[in-house]
């Protein structure tokens, strides 16, 4: 059987909110080492990869590996019934066709349980190699959210260029053009306010803004976001989820034909 308890249930709520617009359904794979998900959007342009480690949970037990086919809009409906301070326990029997979610209020005076119907999903897995990127940029997650929101109101695609001057986001559309440049900045006492640009070589890539904006639905999960760029490769937008794991979004670049 599978059983996992997380005392900070709001994290689970935020995770599902972060990916439900991007992917309709997918297999959450459970194993003794934790939970993971890899799912592509319907157009195969971007991919969400989620890793939650067993030791990040308050309690974790998984006797055998199994995929749990989840419809994320339905998962979200049930998680919306959990209070933000609730502890959440997930339970499933081996080869079950449902996932039980139990919500406990922080003073344990309210307990509720819901069953989510599981689906059989044939999923495609992509092998994503570990690699060095030409540029890795860490910035406040709120800053990333602001940039992609602002630029989406101006244009459809963004050119992201990383140089020793900083990282520049440029777009243009019917109303005109926009450029936002962030410089390496570690002056704040608060680490989450730092912008750190780790540049091995300059790189410039173009992406569809609506997907980059969609990734910012994960802003509530982490104070910082990391962007990884290499010429002619998908961008990786990564949020660390505390000690629990991470959520990564991959988006294919637009390449001149």
């Amino acid at each position: 059987m599978f059983e996992a308890k997380i005392s900070q249930g709001s994290v689970l709520k935020k995770l599902v909110e972060a990916l439900k617009e991007l992917v309709t359904e997918g297999n959450i794979d459970v194993s003794p080492s934790g939970m993971s998900l890899q799912a592509m959007d319907s157009s195969h342009v971007c991919l969400v990869s989620l890793v939650l480690r067993d030791d990040g949970f308050d309690h974790f037990r998984c006797d055998r590996n199994m995929p749990m086919g989840i419809h994320f809009a339905n998962f979200s409906k049930i998680l919306k019934c959990a209070g933000n301070d609730d502890a959440i326990t997930l339970k499933a029997e081996d080869n079950a066709d449902q996932l039980t979610l139990m919500f406990e209020s922080s003073n344990q005076d309210r307990i509720s349980d819901f069953d989510l119907k599981l689906m059989s999903i044939e999923s495609e897995h992509l092998g994503i190699p570990d690699q060095d990127y030409s540029a890795e940029i860490k910035m406040p997650a709120s800053e990333y959210q602001r940039i992609v929101r602002d630029l989406t109101s101006i244009g459809d695609t963004v050119l992201i260029s990383a140089t020793k001057e900083g990282i520049k986001f440029s777009t243009s559309g019917d109303v005109g053009t926009a450029n936002v440049t962030l410089r390496h900045n570690t002056t704040s006492e608060k680490q989450e306010e730092h912008t750190i640009i780790d540049l091995k070589e300059p790189v410039a890539l173009t992406f569809a803004l609506r997907y980059l904006k969609n990734f910012s639905n994960a802003t509530a999960l982490a104070p910082q976001v990391k962007l990884s760029l290499t010429k002619d490769l998908p961008i990786v937008v990564e949020y660390q989820v505390g000690e629990l794991g991470n959520i990564r979004f991959y988006l294919a670049p637009k390449i001149d034909d």
Binding site: H125, L126, G127, P234
Partner: peptide, 14 residues
């Protein structure tokens, strides 16, 4: 014009 590529062109399907 730039084209939007499929992710499968970058990473192998397992």
């Amino acid at each position: 014009t730039p084209i939007q590529n499929d992710l499968c062109e970058f990473y192998a399907l397992l």
